[in-house]
Amino acid sequence: MNIVIALLLAYLLGSIPSGLWIGKLIFHKDLHEHGSGNTGATNTFRTLGVTAGMVVFIIDLLKGTLAVMLPMSFLFDIKGISPLIFGLLAVLGHTISIFDKFKGGKAVATSGGVILGYQPTFLLFLLIVFVIILILFSMISLSSISAAFAAIFGIAVFPAFHFILNNYNWFFSLIICIMSAVILVKHRSNMNRIRDHQESLVPFGFNLSHQNKRN
């Protein structure tokens, strides 16, 4: 019973639509009606401002981290089940939220939170990739897509050299592949806009792909 309750709690934790609720309660704006229509941190930044965006980012990140910590907490102390299962449920909750008519965000921050709770050094590598791509191309979407591909590359290559990941962990690799796939699927429309040079840009960086759309 403890396992079932913890799994359900992980999903519900991930389902908290922080951007949607903050937008409605504090700014009286429905994020579904502004910008990309997404309720994640990126659209919150663009629609509600930097402070709200940072708050939503931190909450979404911590949803993944706290979910990973659930089976090790004093509330449950569950043995024999990987904490990554709970993290994955939080990611699914974030993208298919029961509190938002089974809609949600693009899973970048929450996936990062899962990795932060399980393998923080690997997250640092992904963060470096994210920041480099952001500076070069001025697109959060492309940075997220690149980090997803970098995660797949990392789990395939790093253990062979005992760099960051000391050994191959098939279950961690599976979870990384699933989370990366979710991120890539959720960014399909962004990929189309990038191809058409119409993707939204942050107000800094080099915009090396020469996108035309600016916020």
Rank of each mutant, 00 (worst) to 15 (best):
F163N: 04
G104P: 01
I59S: 07
A151Y: 00
S111M: 13
P83L: 05
G19K: 09
F172E: 01
A156K: 10
M1G: 11
I164E: 06
L84Y: 10
T51K: 13
A151V: 03
K29Q: 14
F206V: 01
S15A: 14
M69V: 00
F149Y: 15
S111P: 02
W21V: 13
V114L: 14
N215V: 13
P71G: 07
S82L: 00
I16P: 01
L75K: 08
I5W: 09
T65D: 06
G19D: 05
A181H: 04
S18P: 08
I115T: 08
V91Q: 13
I85S: 10
S189N: 15
P120E: 10
L127N: 00
L165K: 09
L75H: 09
I194M: 13
F99R: 05
D196K: 15
M1S: 11
G93H: 09
I152Y: 00
T121K: 11
V129G: 10
L8R: 02
P203K: 08
H94L: 00
F57S: 13
V131T: 15
L84M: 13
L7I: 06
V55T: 14
M69D: 06
K186N: 10
S138T: 11
V68Y: 03
M54H: 02
N166S: 12
T47F: 03
G117F: 07
T47K: 02
H94M: 02
L165Y: 09
K213T: 14
G14H: 04
L184G: 08
G53Y: 10
H28Y: 11
G205V: 07
H162A: 14
H94P: 02
V114M: 14
V55K: 00
T39A: 03
F122E: 07
G14P: 14
K103P: 02
N38L: 07
T51R: 13
F125S: 10
N169M: 08
F130T: 04
D30W: 11
M1F: 06
L8W: 01
S82C: 04
F86I: 10
T39H: 01
G105P: 01
I58Y: 03
K103T: 14
A107G: 08
P17Q: 04
L184H: 06
L136V: 07
I3L: 10
L174V: 08
N38T: 00
N207W: 02
N207P: 07
L48M: 09
V114F: 09
